[in-house]
Amino acid sequence: MELVLSIGIGVLTASGVWLLFRPRTYQVIIGLSLLSYAVNLFIFGMGRLRVNAPPVLEPGGTGGLLTHTDPIPQALVLTAIVIGFAMTSLFLVVLLASRGFTGTDHVDGRE
């Protein structure tokens, strides 16, 4: 599972960075989205990978990282997803405004 996750993060980051450096605004926004997926998976991985371990304590039970998965990265990912989503939609609006003003989808507003 570690291998799958790390390859996934690597591929997403590589494609995201490559797209980020492309000259079209659409490529840039897709690049930023891929990058934010990679970052979210990475945060998740930093809490250590566990299978079948609950993040929330049972009533009356005692917790510990041997029986439970670390809940903090999951909370962080949730926040990062919300913020990343909002920023991407804002970027989309600016992208359309730029297209409207300049008539081209080049990031510098001219070919």
């Binding site: 980020l20 840039v28 930023l32 970027f91 600016v94 300049t102 990031v107 507003g109």
Partner: peptide, 13 residues
């Protein structure tokens, strides 16, 4: 809008 596009992209990265 052009300056804003660059500013937002840089800051998101």
């Amino acid at each position: 809008v052009k300056a804003g596009l660059h500013y937002i992209a840089v800051n998101l990265a």
